[in-house]
Write a protein that binds this DNA or RNA. Structure first.
Lengths: 230, 230
DNA sequence: CTCATGCCGATACACTGTATTTCTCCAGTG
DNA sequence: CACTGGAGAAATACAGTGTATCGGCATGAG
């Protein structure tokens, strides 16, 4: 009996696990944004049928949750510096950098509570930075405030980045000359303060803008740490 | 020739405009969240075919943009108080209240630049509050920082609210006892600071949490206004 | 009255998330 | 070794999506 008489052995299904699934989804999102992530495409990338994924997740939202947690692993620094301020600053900047690597993160940031292991670890790191420097309530408020600023700022940065990319113009040029709508609106005179800001304001790059606002918020936290109950 | 011999006059198509379209979309979103908004359903609510909408918008994203701008009209207060701090505080709180009325706003906040007339008016109001109190760059930074905090904080609040609603539990109970996953994670001892915060922390209501963080950020702004270039 | 034009609705398409049904292979059992 | 459950993967199915295209009809101008 020759080889050709025998049928090929059946293709055993590719072994799967959440790690592989999430990696495929992240890759797709990195390439084409969140909307490029469909269960069919994720499965296809793994040589599996779409329905197989439902053994590992029970809804597409859960896949997104896993993706977010996966990226949070990149955010955690190897070691924490002793200085609370430096620790919080680094965590915020690493979050921003992660969002620049994975722009879709901006769409998900703050959208759901982050309860995955890595997400919890990041929260832990934030809280740990303030350990012993304030009562728990103050620490909680500080962490929430810094986090809120970070996600809000990152979302705006990515939103602007996409807008600029869509028009192919730099932020300044876009506002000043080529954004016909904005120009027309400013010309109405109904937005004097805004017009002044657009025309007279220096255009700072996004990173320093993020850093400056962050420093302000950290200043506020520092002030509260000095007087724990305020 | 009797009435019955004559056919009914053809139903003239319902007159449409963006206002009506946006109102229908907002109503749909208020009832069932953003995902309940489909062009077909919006059109159906207006007794029109889905394709009619493309005369007024050219993409679904644009409909979302219009919805966001519509809500920004609710955010603008009738009159601005003289105090810059009160003005910024009120704007932030009104944004939050709008998001509580229209929870879907949280999904959109910060997602795209707000270039509609009402969105620009809100930005104008924020900038105007600081007019004369700082150079344009400082004012810009201040407005951006406060806005970033607001959107980040609002998003988190709505996210938590939905999570609580999904489990039917209060935030405290959810974290403490019934969130088996969180409880188990905290029990591992890998998140000591977080565990302490969850177990020893007072649970403040969302509004005061928002207000407190906002005050901190405003404190930081106040400090920079004192010394314009810092 | 006729004709052209613009707009509206119907149809079509490619795709989505997910429920359900069908099939195929393997582990146990007699 | 033959057979039979049962598990788990695959195929199919369904209701819905955003949007491109097409066909016809009502209304304006001449």
């Amino acid at each position: 009996m020759t080889v050709w008489d025998r049928p090929e052995p059946p293709n055993r299904p590719v072994p799967l696990d959440r790690e592989r699934i999430v990696a495929a989804a992240v890759a797709l999102a990195d390439e084409g944004g969140l909307e490029a992530v469909s269960l069919r495409k994720v499965a296809a990338r793994l040589n599996a049928g779409p329905m197989r994924l439902y053994g590992y997740i029970s809804t597409k939202q859960e896949l997104f949750d896993l993706m977010v947690d996966e990226v949070h692993a990149e955010i955690l620094p190897e070691e924490q510096p002793g200085d609370w301020r430096e620790a919080l600053r680094i965590l915020a900047h690493r979050t921003r950098q992660a969002a620049l690597r994975h722009e879709w993160l901006a769409d998900l940031l703050g959208g759901r509570p982050t309860l995955g292991p890595n997400g919890l670890a990041v929260t832990e790191a934030r809280l740990a930075a303030l350990d012993g420097l304030a009562d728990v309530d103050t620490a909680m408020r500080a962490v929430e405030t810094v986090s809120a600023y970070s996600t809000g700022s990152i979302r705006r940065e990515i939103a602007n980045l996409r807008a600029e990319r869509a028009t192919g113009l730099s932020k300044r040029d876009w506002q000043r000359a080529s954004g016909p709508h904005v120009t027309r609106m400013l010309a109405t005179g109904r937005f004097p303060a805004l017009a002044k800001a657009v025309y007279d304001g220096a255009d700072v790059d996004a990173e320093t803008s993020f850093a400056t606002g962050l420093d302000w918020v950290l200043d506020a936290v520092a002030a509260k740490l000095a007087r724990p109950s305020a």
